[in-house]
Nucleic acid binder design. Sequence first.
DNA 1: GTCTATAGTAAGATAGAC
DNA 2: GTCTATCTTACTATAGAC
Lengths: 200, 200
Amino acid sequence: MTRKEKDITTEEKIKGAARKVFTQKGYAATRTRDIAEEAGINLALLNYYFRSKEKLFELVMAEKVGELFGMLVPVVVDHSTTLKTKMEKIAATYIDTLEKNPGLPLFVLSEIHRRPEWLSQRVPIADIFKKSSFMQQVREKRPDIDPMHFFMNALGLCVFPFISSPVFIGAGVINRNDFKKLLQERKSLIPVWMNAMLKA
Amino acid sequence: MTRKEKDITTEEKIKGAARKVFTQKGYAATRTRDIAEEAGINLALLNYYFRSKEKLFELVMAEKVGELFGMLVPVVVDHSTTLKTKMEKIAATYIDTLEKNPGLPLFVLSEIHRRPEWLSQRVPIADIFKKSSFMQQVREKRPDIDPMHFFMNALGLCVFPFISSPVFIGAGVINRNDFKKLLQERKSLIPVWMNAMLKA
DNA sequence: GTCTATAGTAAGATAGAC
DNA sequence: GTCTATCTTACTATAGAC
């Protein structure tokens, strides 16, 4: 047994397995047995540590929502950066992070879709975005258009490829390698496109 | 009993219920009992008509994939229209159709994510898109950039709002009415943005 | 803390009456 | 064709030994 394996507590092994299985299959399709097997432990231990499937899911979900939106906050509220810089940071951060965890957006979006109240009950984040420096700067440039459009566009341009890749790849419209190349290109293209949309 | 109700066969009632429940909750979270109840019939009848949950799902899934991508084909292959016209048609068609069926994209994308081989086994549509008039016209305008980028952007700008609306609305970043207003605005904005991106 | 064994329940599917 | 009742399986969760 390597040092690394020995240091991971059973609790962390289960959480790690849960992260993997839940994000891959979603809550409903996940069986606690899958998680136990993935963690290399017995099913009873899962309930010993986390009481129930629901409680374990809750933990993972909160973490994943944080991963997906947490990275956004420091960038959009920063008053010291230009809109262009913000766009560059958003594109680079999202694409690099999601490339390591491509299933993240679809998981979060799907689970929130099935539990619309989940977010409102715990993440009071609306004002942070609405009053953010990003929104102000967009409003200054385009007082004639709802800034939410551009916020959505920025996120969509970054995130949509990851959500739709199974379709494009599955349909044979693109292959895995070309897709990876596209992603890298988008890191520099998205800021340029966003700038063009703001001027259009 | 109204005329309309009387004319709907039991088979159609079940299929209709299945469409509703499957797209709302996804395959795994759907119980055949939910569908039977929604259809106002007995559980046994579902198996009498469709043999199994899987077979019924298969039917709905094929239909929904058709709904989501079928509308795209006639537009992108049409050699008689300009790129600008194509963009206008894509935006208008998608937003109008999806407004009546907002859960469609997330359903299709999620289910394909969980069954990556599903598409490749039955929808041999790759060449239609790759050789489409849309792709050619984009290549002419921007031979320096992979046209797939713009195809993805067009779809993403139309579809992403529907996928992400539960998040935006759930987090309180936007309310339902403003969201509906945004959607209408996007029908004319998206073609403008796409044009701007192509020039950038 | 970790296991085996099992209770309890929910879900998909079918048998058989009408 | 449509129903009620039931079979069978698979899942979550717990009891209890070690």
